[in-house]
Amino acid sequence: MITGFLKISLCTSIGARLEDRLYEHLEWIAPPRLQAHELLVEEMIRAGLEVGSTTPYGTALMRCGETQKQLGETERKFVQSSNIDFLTPLRSFTEGEYRTIQSSYQMRMNRCNQILQKAVSLKQSLYKFIGDANRLTDKLLELCNKPVDGNSTTLSIKQLKRLVEETTFSQILIPLQSVLIPTRPSTGGTNGKHDAFLGHSAYLDGFEDVVEILASLQKPK
């Protein structure tokens, strides 16, 4: 719905929108056509030449026509850039990722797996990293769900400790706010060597032998 409202705002001609929609549906390239402001430009310049380009009125018509032409070109560029830089990404999000967010748990899980598989296909070393991250997650969930008696104040986590201390275990970044704030390049344009995250990254190094159990109803650890 929001993309439709934005399209109406950026392309106000109903006939033009219907024609573009038809060509888009048929996957055809729409033929070039003169917009309303372009027709106005032609008529103003033609009228100026008929009156006389050296007369005051003719000169005014031709100057207004040239100004209108510049305004029309600016409008065309704005509509094109709005479609490329805003409407198309927004449509992609609303028709893709947004539906996934609103979908069932199973569909979200399948989409997550697809994203991870694509990442692994682009960089094979991520396969082990994702596997280690899943193992860590499973151990943390196991720890959280492990039942304890009412008098216990600590719990052993030797298995979790051994997992993280493996020599081949991947580096797991701790998501501190200080290292998650990106910085923009100091110069404009494309900069492939720019590091957006300049903070000192902190990685998971290990766990203590025991974890404390808080004295509340749910016994959080």
Rank of each mutant, 00 (worst) to 15 (best):
S152N: 01
T190Q: 04
L122F: 00
N145M: 06
L126D: 03
Q218E: 12
L214C: 02
L136G: 06
T167E: 15
L126N: 13
C112K: 05
L160C: 10
E19A: 10
N151W: 01
E73D: 12
N83Y: 13
E73Y: 14
V164T: 05
R135C: 03
N134R: 11
N134S: 10
E165A: 07
V148N: 04
S125M: 03
D85K: 14
Q218F: 06
L160T: 10
E50Y: 06
I84E: 09
M62Q: 05
L26T: 12
F169D: 05
D195F: 08
G189K: 03
L71D: 08
L204S: 13
K146V: 01
L176K: 12
E75C: 06
I101R: 06
G199I: 01
T187I: 11
M107C: 03
R17M: 02
R46H: 05
A36S: 14
I172Q: 02
E142K: 09
Y23W: 04
F129S: 05
V51G: 03
D132E: 08
A30D: 02
G131F: 12
E27N: 13
E73P: 00
L173N: 11
G4Y: 10
N134M: 07
A215F: 08
S9C: 04
T88Y: 13
W28C: 13
S170G: 02
A215T: 11
P220M: 01
L214P: 00
V164A: 03
L26M: 14
K123R: 14
L140E: 10
R91N: 04
K219W: 03
A196Y: 12
S81N: 05
Q159D: 08
I181R: 06
E75Q: 12
K123D: 13
V51I: 15
W28V: 05
R17C: 01
K146H: 11
L40V: 01
E95L: 01
F197C: 10
A119L: 11
P220Q: 04
M1N: 06
E50H: 09
F5C: 08
A47K: 15
R99Q: 14
A202P: 03
R17P: 00
R63M: 08
H25I: 11
L71C: 14
L180V: 08
F78N: 00
L61C: 11
Q106Y: 09
G72Y: 07
E38F: 04
R21P: 02
K219P: 00
R46K: 11
T88G: 03
S170T: 11
H194L: 06
L140M: 15
R184T: 04
E142I: 02
